[in-house]
Structures are given as C-alpha cells and as structure tokens.
Write a protein that binds this DNA or RNA. Structure first.
Length: 810
RNA sequence: GGGCUCGUGGUCUAGCAGGUGAUGACGCCGCCUUCACGAGGCGGAGAUCAUGCGUUCGAAUCGCAUCGAGCCCA
C-alpha cells in the first residue's frame, strides 16, 4: 500500500497543549499537502462491493460556483461515508466541454467572429480556453477537500470521449433510433441553429393582439380574427373554431380569404381552440407556435414557409420578402390599416419562447434535421424503477416527458461540438456512415474509406452539422461504468449506484441519460438519483450577477476554511430543497469548529499519553451514560446518512458534541479526569475517536487532525465507520438524572447571583434508591448527601428534579 | 392555463408513515473574565405551526377550500 500520509501521528502524540484558537488555514493546508490522492483511487479488483457515482461533468466556465460546490459536497459526504462503510467507491470527474457558450466567449476574448477562422482553428481556440477553465475548477474542487478519483477523469472534447459519442451515434442509427427528417424544430434565428425543447425558455413580453378581418368566400361577409403575429399571414394555412362555439357553427367547412395575400383557407373545428381568447377564431400558420404544429399534423395541412433560417421573410411573403419579422409586422399592420382590415389592437402580456442562450424569440421552422426517437412509455416505466430522492422530483420528469411534442432534435449548426460522422453520396444521395475504425472523425476533413454501398459512388458531401452537447453528457453513466457497445457489457457494476444532480437539469441531463441508457443498454443507468436544491442569495432570490447577490465558495473558504463551507452545505437545509446562503450560518459553523477544537484541546491535556486498554475497564455510571448516548448517536447518524439526510446527521453530531459532551459530560467528569480516572479517560477517548470518524465525511480536514492525535497512524478517511455499541438504559436514566440535578443547582445559583463555582452548605438528595453523587459534588463544588425519602425535615430550598426531590442549603 | 414545492417564535430552519414539554441556529434579555473554550459559560423570554372547514379519542403532520410565495412547463 502506498504511504498515504506524510505526517505521522506520533508527532502529535507528545504531551502538548494545543493553541487556544483553531487555525483552520494551517491545518487544512497541512492535510492538503499530506494526503496522497491515490487513497481515493477506485480499485476494481478489491473484491469489495462497488459504489459507482455518475458525477456531473460541469460545463467548464472556469467558475466553480456555490451551487456546484453544494452539489459536490453532497457527493463527497456520500463518497467518504460509503468508503468507510466498506464499499469500493468510484468518484470520477468529467468535463462537459462542447457548446455554444464557449464559442461565444472565444469570439469575445479574441474579438473575432467564428466565420473569420477555419473551423479547425476556431475549435483549437475553444479547446485552449476550455483547458484553462478546467484547471481553475479542478483547483477549487481540491481545495474544498472533495475526494475525487482523478485517475478516472474524462474530458468530452478528448478524442477518446468523442469517439465514444460518435460510436453511440452509429449504434443508435443502425438500430433505427436515430433518423433524419424534414420536421419543424425550435430555431434560434440569431444563433442560426436548431435547438431542443430543453433549450427553449419562456419570458413574459408585452405585445399587441391585432383584430384582423378575413372575408368569407361563400357569402362575402367578414370574420374577425385576433393574432399577435400578423407577419405570419402569408403562412396561414387554415382557420379553426371550437366545435361548441355557437357564433361560428355555420362557418365550419367554409373557406376564408387571407387578407393582403389572398390564399383561400378552410375553417376547421377543434377542441383545442379557446373560445375566450380573442374572437374565438384562430388562424393556423406554419408555424407560429407548437399548437400550430399539432394542428398541422392532425389536419394534414400544407406547409407555407414564410420565415427563413436567419429570421427573414421568404418569397412567399411577396413584397415583404427579405424583411425581418418585426419590420414585416409593422408594414403588414400599416397596410391592413390602410385597407380598413385592421379593426383594433389590444395590448397583451404574453409568454414568448426564447433561446436559452441569447434570449432571442425562437421561431418554429421546418428543416432537415437529425432526431433521436423518444419512447415515452419506456422512459416513464424506467423512471419508476429508479429511486428518486426526494421522491417528488420524479413527477417533474414525468410531466416533462408527457409534454414533448416531437422527438429530440440532436443536430446543431455550430462548430465546437462532436461532428456527426456521416457523408452523403454525391451521385445517389445515400447516407454514408463512418466506419467504427475511423472514429473520431470530422467528415468535413476526412473522406470515407470505402465507396458508396448503394451505387458505388466515390464522391461525397460531408455532413456539416454537429451534435447537441447533451449527446455527449447523456453517456456519462455508461462511460464511467466502462460500457462496451460491442459486447454489451460493462467493466464495472452497471447500472451504477448513484446519479447526483440539480433539479434544474432533470428535463435535460436526467431525461437524456435515461433515454440513451435504455436505447443502448436496455436498462436504467443508475439505481438512485439524488437531487440537490439551488443555492439562493441572502435576499432569498436565486443568485445572479444582475442581482448582485452572488457569493463564491472561494470567498467563504478564504475567510473560514473548507470545513466550514462543507458544514454549511450539510446543515443549510433538507437535502433536495433550495438552500438560502447566509453568512450567519457560516459563522455558526465556524464557532462549532472552535468548540470542537476547545474540546480536543481540553481532552489532549488528559489523553496525550493515553494508551487505550485492550479490554474495556470497569466504568462508572456517568461514563456509561456518555457511551450509551454516543451509541445512540452512531445509530442516528448512520440512518441519516443512509437516507441522504446530511442536515440531520450533522445536526445530531453538533448537538451531541456541544451539549452532551462539552456542557454536561466534561463538567461532570472534569475532576475525575484530573485524577486520571481510567473509566473517565476511556470514555472520553472512545467518544472523541468515534466523533472523529463520524465527522470525517463532513469536515475531512478537522477530522483528520483530530484522528491523528488519537490513533496510531493512518488516515481517518481509510478507517472504518463506527459500529454502535450497546445502549445502557439504566445508566442513561441515572446519568440524565445526575445532569439534571447539576443543572437545577446551577439555575438556583444563577437566580440568586451566586457565582457558579461558589460552594453551598450542602445538597441533600431524597431518594430511596442508591445513586452516584461524586460527580454532582465535583460539578457543584458542594457536599452532596443521599437520604431516604422519608428521612425528616430540612432547612433549605426544595426543588423537584424529575421524580426526585433535592434540598439546597446555603 | 397546467404541474410541483412551500407557508412553523423578530429572521432562517427541523419535524409532516397523527399522540413531542414543536428542533436547532442567528438575534434578544439577565448573570458570570469559574483553572478546555469570552467568536465562551450559565440562566431566561419569545410560536394560537398562513386562514377556514373537515376526518379522528387526538392534527404542525391527513383531506378539501381560500390567501400568499417560489420553481418547472404550456
């Protein structure tokens, strides 16, 4: 085994007084330097049960923000806990490199447009920026003490991963799960690319509802139709009314003439028409929105494309051709008005679909794109086989799946992404797939090795489109488990144990991962999914630069240390709910660090030279009380960890250490510790050591420091999780009674302004059963006498403590 | 318009397979420089668990309605 620690604990074993103040910076740096990261390496040959984590591969922006940090803390709590529980844990780290934001950033940094360079050169600049950003984020993860297995790192822009992505494309294409089709897609006219549903956001915008007259062909009367998008008149292919709307019953089946453009369109009846909206008559265009696409399919309507890929009017728009949509809208409204066909305008607040990246309103445009088939039933069934924590987030996935109107569009008209490994035969037009041995391949740069299998042609046109970046990241579970597409076998345990992620990407990463796992392996990707909440600013709103409420984990670590940040992450709120960031909680966490340090400092006065005996010595009741409480704590914390309740675990530990150990036990046992009582020393030693083990997942630096004083060597992070010993209910009852009597005496003194260390005349406890009074006497600095319940009368104040009566004489 | 989550002392928060003196933190008040700890110790005040109705012997916890907040989506 490699030497895990550079510092050996015997250095710390010398009798010593620790400094009064906990110096987190020195301690954390010491252990960062001492730890050998190979102790976190996954060993598939260990024979232990595997616990594989499908860690999120963050987008390398260079900023490991507080939301990431919260997520990684959760993962690390589990990874460290599971290792201590005897699992072989794999905690890999990936980087999801491709995508538009990096392209935009590169254009910004270098002051260029992507069209000014060759694709190859532009891609190189993107790779360079990404590598730099990864380095920054990696450093932050290490500083936070995250126990990542860096021998299992993957970078989606590397050849090996690109090959994996392209291979998965070929497999799914050959299985008929990927196809190319002319179909309406969400389109960003500014980015000039197709985007998936998941990339469409919705924003409220102010607009106008325009009431326009259409002429009935049969009787020449006019019908008023309200629309927010008059520029789409040229694309109008039908009109619809609700079947029960009495106003329009006679119109169904007749034809209307579209104003300005003159095409004749039929009136359909459809339940989806809202009679309350506008005039209750709706024009169907190809395409104004998703509902238009549904109607277009249902009623088998023709296609009239009036907006092109750059958001400009096509030749169908006649004299408006070449205008952008907004200019066109103005001109059409003005022309309608001139012809007395525009009745009125109402202002309206509407929800507009916009591009997630540039906030430009999207268009729905019919183009030739690549799609992945979405099998809704299969995904819904798989979602039920996975354990969701918290449970209700499964509903979010289910609702999302049910709302999808068409398949997943995976082609993008961009540069920094994985190329689609396909050419087209110039002679017959057939699709030519890349050979597996060629991968990764950019078809724009390379040609096929073999002629067209259809016609024997040797000239090919490359596919210029690239893949949606979710095509990379939806494979992370398979990649991590070492899934082989050819043998359909994984090197490691698959499905993997855990997917941790935020709820903001359930409809993307979780959804696509399940979809692809089912398509490629016929099984779910993971058994458990743990959802973390978002971090809100101190003002209670989502952190955002425009609100100026952001806090970086770096800032917290510099001021208070990584352990404090991690403690905040554990205790900030129930796992899965959004967590509000508050500096007060950070300060509370740092106070606990100081309290723990004071406990350790006091203990080392008594334990620095302690050699734990092979066998448990005879224990006094207060010591048995402490150990029994400790055993309860082990049970509570273990259960909480198994249920991902980090807040519960950490709070239990904190409250035990502070109130049971420091406030009650140490006060009671202090004088026996000064007297080197074997019983008290044993109890204190066992308690501290067990605490250091249970603190290890949460505050790994402090726990290591603490453990180094108490053990013969080795890292706390390689140690075993504690097993609970027996619960001694008798000792608990008596110990609790003793603590309560001491509290009552303290209250008595406090109320009368008597210093707490002042001696009273005596304390009489009326009890028919025997009990230990030595620690009470020591903790109250007063003589304690035990008398029978009926043993006469006393001068003094009578106080009831639980079922007992005590008399305090001054 | 639909779905989900939530509404607990001044602030934040736990509990929500029904029975607790309703958790803890911060803040507040009083006392204490007690020999581990003054970024501390000891003691204390402070909540009709959003509102209304219902189920139940019993509700913060279950159901319905209302009001309010946040998130996701159409």
């Amino acid at each position: 085994m490699t030497q895990i620690l550079k510092y050996h604990s015997h250095i710390n074993k010398q009798p010593m007084r620790l400094p009064k103040k906990y110096d987190y910076d020195t301690v954390e740096r010491k252990w960062l330097d001492a730890w050998d990261e190979s102790m976190y390496y996954f060993d598939h040959a260990s024979g232990k049960e595997q616990y594989i984590i499908d860690t999120p591969p963050p987008y390398p922006t260079g900023d490991f923000h507080i939301g990431n940090a919260l997520n990684w803390c959760y993962i690390d709590f589990l990874a460290r806990y599971k290792r201590m529980r005897g699992y072989e844990v794999m905690f890999p780290q990936g980087w999801d490199c491709h995508g538009l934001p990096t392209e935009v950033k590169v254009e910004e940094i270098h002051g260029i447009s992507r069209h000014q360079l060759s694709k190859h050169e532009f891609r190189a600049l993107c790779e360079e920026l990404t590598a730099r950003n990864i380095e920054q984020m990696r450093a932050m993860m290490k500083r936070l003490g995250i126990s990542i297995d860096w021998s299992h790192e993957y970078i989606t822009m590397d050849d090996s991963y690109m090959r994996y992505t392209q291979l998965s494309f070929l497999k799914m294409y050959k299985a008929g799960l990927i196809y190319q089709a002319e179909h309406p897609v969400n389109w960003c006219p500014r980015c000039e690319t197709a985007i998936a549903f998941a990339e469409v956001e919705y924003e409220d915008r102010d607009s106008y509802l325009n009431y326009i007259l259409f002429r009935r062909v049969d009787n020449g009367s006019y019908v008023e139709i309200a629309t927010t998008r008059p520029e789409l008149l040229a694309s109008c292919v039908a009109v619809a009314v609700h079947p029960d709307d009495d106003r329009y019953k006679d119109m169904i089946g007749s034809e209307l003439e579209v104003p300005l453009f003159g095409q004749r369109v039929r009136v359909y009846q459809d339940d989806a028409v809202d009679p309350e909206f506008g005039t209750g008559v709706v024009m169907i265009c190809t395409f104004g929105d998703r509902q238009d696409v549904r109607w277009w399919k249902q009623h088998d309507l023709p296609l009239r494309v009036s907006i092109d890929e750059r958001g400009r009017m096509t030749s169908i728009a006649g004299k408006y051709a070449g205008l952008d949509t907004l200019e066109c809208r103005k001109r059409i409204l003005s022309d309608l008005s001139d012809s007395d066909l525009l009745m009125r305008q109402e202002s309206i607040r509407q929800n507009v679909g916009v591009c997630w990246r540039c906030k430009t309103p999207i268009e729905i445009i019919s183009t030739r794109q690549w799609f992945v088939r979405v099998n809704k039933e299969e995904i819904l069934k798989a979602a039920k086989e996975i354990n969701w924590y918290p449970h209700h987030f499964r509903l979010r996935l289910e609702n999302w799946v049910q709302s999808m109107d068409w398949d997943w569009c995976i082609s993008r008209q961009r540069i920094f992404s994985v190329p689609i490994p396909v050419w087209y035969c110039k002679r017959c037009g057939a699709v030519k797939l890349a050979e597996e041995s060629q991968l990764p391949v950019d078809p724009v740069v390379k040609s096929p090795d073999t002629p067209c299998s259809n016609c024997g042609g040797t000239e090919f046109e490359p596919e210029h489109d690239v893949l949606d970046t979710w095509m990379d990241s939806s494979l992370t579970a398979l990649w991590t488990a070492g899934w082989h597409f050819d043998t359909c076998e994984a090197e490691f345990q698959f499905p993997v144990a855990l997917r941790p992620q935020g709820h903001d990407i359930i409809r993307t990463w979780a959804f696509y991962s399940i979809l692809r796992s089912l398509a490629l392996t016929r099984t779910i990707p993971w058994h458990n999914i743990l959802i973390n909440g978002m971090v809100l600013g101190e003002d209670g709103y989502k952190m955002s630069k425009s609100r100026h409420n952001t806090v970086s984990p770096d800032e917290v670590i510099q001021k208070y240390g990584a352990d404090v940040f991690r403690q905040w992450a554990a205790i900030g709120g129930a796992t899965g709910s959004d967590v509000q960031f508050r500096w007060k909680d950070i300060i509370a966490a740092s106070k606990f660090m100081q309290k723990l340090w004071s406990i350790l400092r006091f203990s080392m006065i008594h334990l620095a030279d302690y050699e734990p005996p092979a066998k448990e010595p005879e224990l006094e009741v207060v010591d048995r009380w402490l150990l029994s409480q400790l055993n309860r704590l082990v049970i509570t914390v273990t259960e909480a960890m198994d249920g991902y309740q980090f807040d519960e675990a950490m709070k239990s530990i904190r409250s035990f250490a502070w109130y049971v150990l420091a406030d009650d036990y140490i006060e009671l046992a202090k004088s026996r510790l000064y007297g080197r009582s074997p019983s008290a020393r044993y109890a204190l030693y066992q308690t501290l050591k067990t605490l250091s083990l249970m603190l290890a997942p949460f505050i790994p630096f402090f726990a290591e420091e603490m453990y180094s004083y108490l053990s013969e060597g080795g890292s706390v992070h390689m140690a075993k999780w504690p097993q609970p010993g027996k619960i001694d209910t008798d000792a608990e009852a008596e110990g609790e009674l003793i603590a309560a009597i001491v509290r009552a005496v303290r209250r008595y003194k406090s109320e009368r302004g008597i210093p707490l260390n002042a001696a009273l005349k005596r304390i009489v406890i009326l009890s028919d059963t025997d009990m230990s009074t030595g620690d009470i006497a020591n903790a109250t600095a007063t003589t304690v006498e035990l008398k029978n319940n009926d043993a006469g009368t006393y001068e003094g104040t009578v106080i009831d403590v639980k079922e007992l009566r005590i008399i305090i004489e001054e």
